[in-house]
Amino acid sequence: MNDSNASPEELLRRFQARIDAEQRIEPKDWMPEAYRRTLVRQISQHAHSEVIGMQPEGNWILRAPSLRRKAVLLAKVQDEGGHGLYLYSATETLGVSREELVEALHEGRAKYASIFNYPTLTWADIGAIGWLVDGAAIVNQISLQRTSYGPYARGMVRICKEESFHQRQGYEVILTLARGSAEQKAMAQDALDRWWWPSLMMFGPHDAESAHSAQSMTWKIKRQSNDELRQKFVDQTVPQAEFAGLVIPDPQLLWNAERGHYDFGPIDWEEFNRVVAGNGMCNRDRIAHHRRAHEEGEWVREAVRAHEERKRERAAQDAA
């Protein structure tokens, strides 16, 4: 069973057999180069999304309407930074460095969830993000807890434990507004109107048009298709909107008793492609801000290095 003298066909056979048997692939296992590349692309894209996603919410930390809301939002945004870290570390087990990953993001070679290219115009948007965007992310992440790559799967388990609070605090914000004054209710509705369709787009293209899906399903990197996950999200979210007395902006949305699911209207893929291609409202800002934050942090890294250097010198002097 030694990998080193097996033929490539034999290695591939063992690899797929392991996946078919629902076992995880671990960093030091043999894996096809395309599997590794797909994982690097997908996990780093996921990591970038966590980190870039801090920006639209960070925009409201100082303007949150109460001390409690500020503290909650701050804690949530801090969690997202942590999620980015878990996922970057999982990517690093595949032999890529953090520097390479961040460079790919800055140069536009790596993508992140395009929903974060929409602006947060009102406080209600913070509620809508927690409720819908985290809600959609959770549906996807629960499914990925069973992804075939061990470090990714374990990262997802850790992340899912933290996500539930994100969605609940968002829904609480929305529910509070929806039960407030007419003006506040209108804010909540307006936020739902703007965030609903981009949230559905988070699950990616329809299965028939999804470029990487079939291979990723065979490798069990993906466990459920984009359309299955999207349907799940719609089914669980519609009753939550109804409960809050809000209307989902889709005239074709209708319970289909035969299917046991909600039917919903067509997604505007032209808009999706425009935003993915870099022409959303905030694409340039998001990357510029990320670059600036990294550059402006240079003095901190420099100070840390200088401080350690001085400590070492002093220790050497004391020893002499």
Partner: peptide, 19 residues
């Protein structure tokens, strides 16, 4: 001192409490 980090901190009506 940050109980709001826990999902249980957010009391939702039973109809939507499954999130």
């Amino acid at each position: 001192d940050k109980p709001y980090r826990h999902a249980t901190h957010y009391r939702l009506p039973p109809e939507v409490d499954n999130m």
